[in-house]
Amino acid sequence: MNLNIFITKCAVLFGKGVNGFAKQKIQGGKLVYVRIRYDSTIESVEILGDFFMHPEEALLRIENALVGAEVKNRGDMLERVEKVVLSEKIEMIGISPSAIVDTIMIAVAQ
């Protein structure tokens, strides 16, 4: 899915321990935003928005799979997300693995 990065990009420092935040509307899709705590690697990440995902519980496993990924390594993050999506046969509507990773990249680039 192509990304439309023009709509919303938000700045840093939200809540306890969170040092990255980004929000964007996916072209032809839904709104996705991430709250991330990271140094050179992801310590925790929360993926939020008005998208759909079946099964819903799988989002937690995607978030967990991203912990430990290097924040500048797009390929590694994408591989981690896609691995969970494939193994759990996750259906995503209005969001995609690349949209999640790109939103994380925006959050850490602030």
């Binding site: 993926i47 939020l48 928005g49 008005d50 998208f51 995902m53 819903e56 989002l59």
Partner: peptide, 9 residues
């Protein structure tokens, strides 16, 4: 709110 949204937000 949708199940992936934040109530506070």
């Amino acid at each position: 709110i949708g199940c992936f949204q934040s109530m506070d937000e």
